[in-house]
């Protein structure tokens, strides 16, 4: 993968412990990563804790970054893992992930598209924020962060089919929520 030489120098300076470089790296990604945290954690305080822990981790592990992905993608994995570490301490999160029965692939195939006319940024944001934690996290990872079901399954320690079922149900809930506001 081609890497931007400026980014490569920035990473090197961060590894040397140069504070100004670390601050520049932080400000390059802080907004995007904070929004990832907010969607996954829901509560602002939890999102801030996750963001803090994630960036401390980023600087601690930066020497292991091999430029095999983009720096942003590498940082996002650390952010997601820190969010999940905090969520897993919440008992109901695990219960939600485990207690949802799987649905057949046919059900997935029959899934109808949501009505684009009902979409607004604000309505979708609200619909996702009101989802139970398990659904919300899978929606965030799939719809926003671009992970596939195999990656989500690995992140969460669940099967791919559970990930698919959860997404399907979450989208149905989002649809209902959008229709009720329509």
């Amino acid at each position: 993968m081609k890497t931007n030489p400026v980014e490569r120098d920035l990473v090197k300076d961060c590894i040397k412990g140069k504070r100004d470089a670390q601050y520049r790296l932080y400000t390059r990604y802080d907004g995007a990563m904070y929004n990832v945290c907010l969607r996954m954690m829901k509560k602002r305080e939890d999102a801030e804790d996750a963001l803090q822990d994630a960036f401390v981790d980023v600087f601690r592990k930066l020497h292991t970054f091999r430029f095999e992905s983009t720096l942003g993608a590498w940082i996002k994995r650390i952010v997601v893992n820190n969010c999940l570490n905090l969520l897993k301490k919440q008992k109901d999160f695990i219960v939600q992930l485990e207690n949802i029965p799987e649905i057949s692939v046919d059900d997935n195939k029959r899934e109808e598209d949501l009505d684009v006319q009902s979409f607004t940024v604000q309505r979708i944001k609200e619909a996702i924020q009101f989802l139970p934690s398990g659904y919300r996290v899978i929606c965030s990872l799939y719809l926003f962060e671009g992970y596939d079901h195999q990656e989500i399954a690995t992140f969460l320690g669940i099967s791919e089919s559970t990930s698919k079922s959860q997404l399907h149900r979450a989208k149905r809930k989002i649809k209902n929520s959008l229709l009720s506001h329509g």
């Binding site: 601050y23 932080y26 400000t27 802080d30 907004g31 995007a32 904070y34 929004n35 907010l38 801030e48 963001l51 803090q52 940024v121 979708i124 944001k125 926003f144």
Partner: peptide, 11 residues
């Protein structure tokens, strides 16, 4: 969707 900013004291 990504319109929120982290608090100033975060760094």
């Amino acid at each position: 969707f990504d319109d929120r900013r982290p608090p100033e004291g975060m760094w």
